[in-house]
Structure formats: structure tokens, C-alpha cells
Design a binder for these strands. Structure first.
Lengths: 267, 267
DNA sequence: CGGGGTCTTGACGTGAGTCAATATGCGTGG
DNA sequence: CCACGCATATTGACTCACGTCAAGACCCCG
């Protein structure tokens, strides 16, 4: 099972037609991007739809002062440029966190595949929703949550996404993250990331040694961090890991309580 | 000229067919959402594609502690739920900042219009790029910029988007923003927003009285705030306001300098 | 065995939050 | 036309989460 198919199957049930088209896409030319290198840079034209097959990447922007801000993580199965046919120049850069295998898909090929399968089109639409949802959630995290919750929520999201791909089990997953990268993503200093990480360790919510992370109690971490996976739109995925509790799925889609606004109902 | 058409014309040249389809969409049932009310809430099903005709809205999420975080502003011509056919439940809420007129478009009608015009499809794709781009830029703002630049960049973006619609001239535009709303959007206290606003006033970069904002020197504010409109993808728009300088368009698409990474080229 | 990237730790500085009081402006009803 | 009342804006004093700086420790890899 390739990662794109694994992810898409979390959105909708894929029929044979869709799986065939996906397989077709996967047969595109491949590319190895070494750790630390860029897949594409801000301002460059977009020639291919790129798909992460293996390894992690990140979307980032450089600031005036040279710092870099990571605005998204790319995991296996993630599309780097679904908008190849539209946008003519990148408004951000994409870098590899570890050695990263990508498929380079000609935009026309990509488009044709979408035309040929309704399921695939649907899955792509879900994926776009999820990307926007993640970005919005990330905006909220940075704006509104204190350091501990911020890091906690990021770890929960990564864990959830990886679990959906079958790349995490029992709260454990391999990762190329460093505390510096985490700092670039959370808008904090690596020094402060370090202190927060130790705090999480102290609370028994995180084991992180080298290239492996374990979340011993994802539910508690999620609660502490205000993480709820709704924005990922993976309707067909309820992680076994997140609960011995079978009612989790039922409890989860709660609407946060709203202190009554002066004007009553929504439309 | 309706605002949707005005915006889309900044992405691509609209042919007659596209303009006809857009006019068709605009004839949908309308709705008035009073200031402070919600258009739709997190968790609710999506029945319509909604288009802001007049007034301002915002996307927001509520936090555990009751604060609300604004993650995007919706201006005339903005689509609230282009994903109506895909996502079954909202992962955030949409509220009106002032009295807001919306068109409620049946998803099938929306879809049909897109099918019938290639231009329209293209414009929609651009708009999706822009929405993602804005969200990423906003992520970066919150994570990496100090309060003054954060507010500056937001004001620049709003000004740019409004100017593209013809709703700002000479740096001046009408707005329902309050310092509280601005605080909810920038992840700051309204107290601190106030101090920053006064700082901006003191520097002669902002006039803000009641429901009108003027940016006396948008270029300088943009530079101070690190704002560059690339991420808005409005290729066919170079604001007169942003420059007596006709070379601005040529200068603008710069790639920020990159301190040489250990591993050389991008692909 | 050495070296660079990574992680830790401590002392100290500061931007932004908190709390709380006061002003200002505006829409409404008298 | 004026008075009241609420939303919004402003101010000052004090606190604190997180940044800065700098030194060391660790650890994997060649």
C-alpha cells in the first residue's frame, strides 16, 4: 500500500478505478532529495506536481533577518504542489528534513488522472480541505496557545497523521525532527523548546530519544493541548491508539461551548 | 461590477462566458447576517457555498477557555465554503463583523457554473491558492513577527485586497475592525494592540478614526512589516497606491536571500 | 580519537500580558 | 437637544512567559 492511497482511503472509500489511477501516478519519475536540501524555492516556477513517497519535508519561508519559519510539515503521501497548473511561482520553499523520496508528476498527467476517477477527485478535494484546515489550526496554535500546548498539539497532529498512514503504532513513530526544527515550526527558541520538551518528559507525556518519539498517553496530551482531529477531515479514521475507549468517536465531534453572543442564532 | 468578478479579474482575464456564469451565481438567494452574528458554526453541516457580497466577516475558532481566535478575514468577493460538496462539517465558525450580505449558492449550481467556464475554474483555482497562501503567511506572521510588524502586515494585506476590489483609494478604506477584533486576529491583548496602534500613529504610518483607516505610506509600512503581496497571487494587479514607482512590479518578485545551506541546489 | 551537530543548563533581559481605573464616542430614548 | 448607557479606546503599574547569551555536555559518525 502506498502512502497516497493510505491517506486517501481515510477520506473516502477508493474504488478500483481510483486505485488504478493512483498507481499510475506513483509510476512517475522519482527523485531523491537529500536531508537539508530544498525541493523547490520561493519564486521558482512550478513544473511538477510532487508527491512525498518517503521521508519528511517542510514548507518554510525565510524572514528578512535570515531566520526561517516552518509553516507546514510534509509527510509521506502529501502533495507538494497540487496547484502546479495554476500558480506560476512558489510563494514559499519546500525543504527535506531527512532524505526524501518524491514522485515528480507532470501536471497534465495529474490532471488526467483526476478526470478519470471521481473518487480520486473527491479524495483530492478532501486533501485540500485538510491542508487548509491544518494551516488554520496551525495559525490558531501559534496565536493562542502557550508553548507547552503548542508543541503538544503539533506532536498530536503528527502522530495522528502518521497513524492514519500506518506509520505510527502504540504512540511511537520515527521522525527526523530536531528541537531546532521544532523551534522553527512553533515560533520559539530552541532553548525554550528544550525546556518544554523536558517538561513534557517530566509529566510522562513524551519520550523522545534520537530519531524516535513515543507519546505514552496521546489522549491526555491531546486534551492538555486542545488537540481535536476534526480539522484533518479523516472521516474514515478513528485511531485505535487514541482510545481503549470505543466511545471516543462519539464524544469527539463536540462543538466548543459558546458564551451566548448578543445576537442569537446562526443561519 | 460585483466583487467576485473584480477579484477574479485580478487572477486571470475573464471571458464573456465566465462573466455570465458569475452573474448567474450572484442571482442566488441572498441573506443578511447582522453584525456580530454567525453565518455558520463549527460542527455544522455545510448546505451552501456562500459568497460575501458586502460587509466583512471572519473565520474563527473558539478556545477551551472561551477566547476566540480569528484566523482569517472575509471581504466582499470571498467565498466562505468553496468546499461545500466535500467537507460535511465545518471545522471552524464564520462570523459577521458588520452587517454582511451573502449569496447562498446551491453546491450543484456552483459546480455547474465551474464546469461551464474554463476561466472561472481557473480563477477558482487561483483563489484557492491565495487562500492557502494567506493562511501560510498568517501563520508566519503570528509565529515570527513582533507585534508592530504583525499588525502592519495585516493592515497591508487588507489594504491590498481591498484596493484590488476598488474598495480602497489613496490608502484609505472603510472597515468594521475594532482593536478588540484586531487583537483576536493577531493573538495579542487589546491593550497591547492599542499601544502598537498608537506607535504606528506616532510614526505617521496609520490614521484610524472610527470606521475608517488610512495608510499614509503603504510602501513604508509594507517594508517595515515584511509584507510582500506575492502570496496573494494577484498577477494582474499592481496597485497604483503602492507606488508612484512604476518599477515596483519588477522589483517585487524577489526571492529572499538564503544564507548558503550546506547542501547546494534546489531541484 | 576528533569534530560538528545537537541537546542542556543557568543567569539575566524584555516584550507582551494582566489588572484596573478612566476617558471617549455614539446611538437611543426622553 | 440633552442625558444616559454601553461599546470602545486609553493609561499606568506590575508580572511573567519566553528570549538572549554563553558555557558545557552529549553523541553519533567518520
Amino acid at each position: 500500500m502506498n502512502p497516497l492511497q493510505a491517506k486517501f482511503a481515510r477520506y473516502v472509500e477508493l474504488d478500483l478505478q481510483a486505485r488504478t489511477q493512483i498507481d499510475g501516478l506513483l509510476r512517475s519519475e522519482g527523485r531523491l532529495v537529500p536531508a537539508g536540501a530544498d525541493l523547490i524555492r520561493e519564486g521558482e516556477p512550478i513544473h511538477f506536481v510532487k508527491l512525498v513517497i518517503d521521508g519528511w519535508g517542510c514548507r518554510y519561508k525565510l524572514l528578512e533577518d535570515g531566520r526561517r519559519q516552518v509553516v507546514a510539515f510534509l509527510l509521506p503521501g502529501d502533495l507538494c504542489n497540487p496547484d502546479a497548473l495554476t500558480a506560476e511561482a512558489m510563494d514559499h520553499s519546500i525543504g527535506a528534513l531527512n532524505d526524501m523520496h518524491c514522485a515528480l508528476i507532470a501536471p497534465e498527467v495529474f490532471d488526467r488522472a483526476c478526470l478519470r476517477s471521481h473518487c480520486l477527485r473527491q479524495a483530492m478535494a478532501f486533501d485540500a480541505c485538510a491542508m487548509l484546515g491544518m494551516q488554520r489550526e496551525w495559525t490558531l496554535n501559534l496565536a493562542a496557545r502557550p508553548a507547552l500546548a503548542r508543541i503538544g498539539a503539533l506532536l498530536c497532529e503528527l502522530h495522528y497523521r502518521l497513524a492514519a498512514l500506518g506509520l505510527a503504532a502504540d504512540g511511537r513513530f520515527a521522525t527526523p525532527l530536531t528541537q531546532v526544527t521544532l523551534a522553527e515550526a512553533t515560533g520559539m527558541t530552541s532553548v525554550h523548546v528544550n525546556r518544554v520538551v523536558q517538561d513534557l518528559r517530566g509529566r510522562g507525556l513524551l519520550h523522545w530519544h534520537g530519531r524516535h518519539i513515543t507519546l505514552p498517553d496521546p489522549d491526555r496530551l491531546a486534551q492538555l493541548s486542545g488537540f481535536s482531529p476534526r480539522y484533518l477531515h479523516m472521516n474514515r479514521f478513528v485511531p485505535g491508539t487514541f482510545a481503549g475507549d470505543p466511545d471516543l468517536a462519539a464524544k469527539s465531534p463536540r462543538v466548543p461551548p459558546r458564551t451566548e453572543s448578543k445576537i442569537a442564532g446562526a443561519i
